[in-house]
């Protein structure tokens, strides 16, 4: 059970003045149940890459396999694939269109042709999982706050019960609290539903607390694909490609440079605190 990308190339507007190779020879295996952070700055190809996962964009060359089946086979059912690989786009609140929150969430499961009862059950469950209370389900989605709208939109995809959940910058434009809430809920969903989650972000600090694997994209290629700890050890190279490791990583390296022997391989504030205390107590 996995997504396999085999030597994917993708070219935008081929044979025009605006021709641009968005993805270069990408090979990637995403195993079941993984929690992955996909990092890269704007234009690095990360948004294009995730649209290959459910066949919304077809590679110029290369193959995509879902659970061993080639999704570019002529008789492969792409609709079935989109049911299994749920994609939450950037600013997903801009896709809301129904008159009530509940109806909007029901849109996805209804398209799957489920019974009315199943549609309801899934919608209520998804709304609950993203923390939208019963008092809001009959409200118009356009009356909600920005953070609430976003959570309704995520519920719309969750209600389709995907096996893989891909979220493109789910925290863009939210304030710190809203960001932490959404990331916390995504982590909880990952744990409870045991589904694969791919979190696209341009902030290392945001994902470092949650994911177990980080894929760094740069210029349409994969620059790093490793655990957060190992990826952040390349903090200097990361900076060159316009990304940054979490600030605490830099702080630990700065301490080490001044001759304070702390563990530099930290990714979170908690780890950094332990590292400094370990040195301080020994000193």
């Amino acid at each position: 059970m996995s997504i396999i990308l085999d030597k994917i190339n993708y070219i935008y507007s081929p044979n025009t003045a605006y021709e641009k190779q968005a993805l270069k020879n990408i090979s990637l295996v995403i195993e079941d149940g993984e929690f992955i952070g996909l990092i890269g700055h704007t234009g690095s190809g990360k948004s294009t890459l995730i649209q290959h996962f459910n066949g919304l964009v077809k590679a110029t060359s290369g193959g995509v396999y879902y659970n061993g089946a080639d999704i570019y086979d002529t008789d492969y059912n792409l609709k079935e694939l989109r049911k299994k690989v749920g994609l939450v786009f950037q600013y997903p609140e801009y896709q809301l269109f129904e008159t009530t929150v509940l109806k909007d969430v029901q849109f996805g499961p209804k398209n799957l042709g489920l019974t009315a009862l199943e549609v309801d059950l899934r919608s209520y469950e998804a709304l609950k999982q993203v923390g939208i209370g019963d008092d809001l389900i009959d409200a118009s989605p356009f009356e909600l706050s920005g953070g609430q709208k976003r959570r309704v939109a995520i519920a719309g995809v969750l209600a389709m019960k995907p096996e893989v959940l891909v979220l493109d910058e789910p925290t863009a434009g939210l304030d710190p609290k809203g960001r932490d809430e959404i990331l916390g809920q995504i982590a909880k969903i990952h744990e409870e539903r045991k589904i694969t989650v791919v979190l696209v972000s341009h902030s290392m600090e945001d994902v470092a607390d949650y994911v177990e694997r980080i894929i760094v994209m740069d210029g349409g290629s994969i620059a790093y694909d490793d655990t957060p700890r190992n990826v952040f050890s390349h903090y200097k190279e990361l900076e060159e490609i316009g990304l940054a490791a979490p600030q605490v990583t830099y702080a630990m390296h700065a301490l080490r440079d001044k001759g304070i022997p702390v563990d530099v391989n930290v990714t979170t504030i908690e780890e950094a605190k332990e590292a400094v205390l370990a040195w301080y107590r020994k000193d």
Binding site: P176, K177, E205, V248, A251, I269, K273, Y280
Partner: peptide, 20 residues
Amino acid sequence: YRMDVPQVTELAYKLKQAGM
């Protein structure tokens, strides 16, 4: 107030609480 602080600020704050 639902605000954050920079990571080093928070780290220093936590270290201070831990006795540094």
